[in-house]
Amino acid sequence: MSGSITYLEAIREAQYDALRNDPAVFLYGQDINTFGGAFKATKNLGKEFPGRVFDSPISEDAMVGLAIGAAIEGARPIVEMQFADFSSIGFNQIVNQAATLYWRTETPCPVTIRLPSGGTAGSGPFHSQSMEAIYAHYPGLVIVTPATVEDAYWMLLDSVALNDPVIYCEHKFLYYHLKSESIGERSLPIGKARIARPGRHATVVTYSAMVHDAIRAAEELQLDGYQIEVVDLRSVKPMDTDTILGSVARTGRLLAVGEAFPWGGVTAEVISRVASEGFHLLDAPPMRLNAKDTPIPYHPNLWKAHRPTVASIAGALRSLLRY
């Protein structure tokens, strides 16, 4: 339909606007120039901005290192990891060089690293990972996890404008499936969570693609008369604890949902904050739902059972509401 824009197109548009608005912006990543990127998130940008979109060698460590050096010189690079999973090769530069630079030397490090994240059927263990919790663990990084077309666009522009390193986790499952009539107006700044769906019987705190599964689960429970509130974290670091606590104050029940592996991570952080700062608000033990504690499977039958689904979120909510 005409005038509609996908999540992926919003990411491309944001990069187009970032390049157009600020000559300090450049893009660095594998296959992103003529080819337009493995997912076409940089389609035509090399043509539209000659000399500012660069194909890099398959060297995630050096790609991030180059971006850090450039940022020190006042550039505002956007690095595309072909898949979030491969950022593990750039891990050292991200957490030890970029994340420590401001603390150690008071030199700003405006680097944005785009991580095509999360699972799609058939992608298997090394093209499906969600890395947000790994990076959120380190001081000195901002971690954003846009769930909507609007946020995909505005949070990428906001990330590029920040004088700090940002890990921008874009969900591959949303690339083509999620559409909006237009990009829309800027809503909230980085650091603020959003009430994606208001409710009063229980709160689901989630982020990225799981926001949509949580909303569908909430719609399912509405048939049984339950009003489920869904909080979209938008950025997992900083985490908007006030909005989470405000929601739990209204509902008394908390389910934290994430697509990432279960040990530690964002959902554990949400539970920990509510337990320590809002224990008195809870009418039931807080629950969490994550992927299974195995590598991410290849076959769709296994993949669908590995990650939280609308059905498993709805099931968890029913247990929570029964308590």
């Binding site: 000559p23 300090a24 450049f26 000399g51 500012r52 060297s59 460590d61 050096a62 790609m63 991030v64 290192g65 180059l66 971006a67 850090i68 050096g69 450039a70 940022a71 020190i72 010189e73 006042g74 550039a75 050292n92 530069q93 030890n96 060089q97 420590t100 630079l101 150690r104 030397t105």
Partner: peptide, 23 residues
């Protein structure tokens, strides 16, 4: 300012030169 992870400053110095060339 070096970090302890050997070899990792090489690409950072390269990046500073890269940005200057771009500017």
């Amino acid at each position: 300012a070096m970090i302890s992870h050997l070899g990792s400053l090489l690409s950072v110095v390269a990046g500073a030169l890269f940005a200057r060339r771009l500017k």
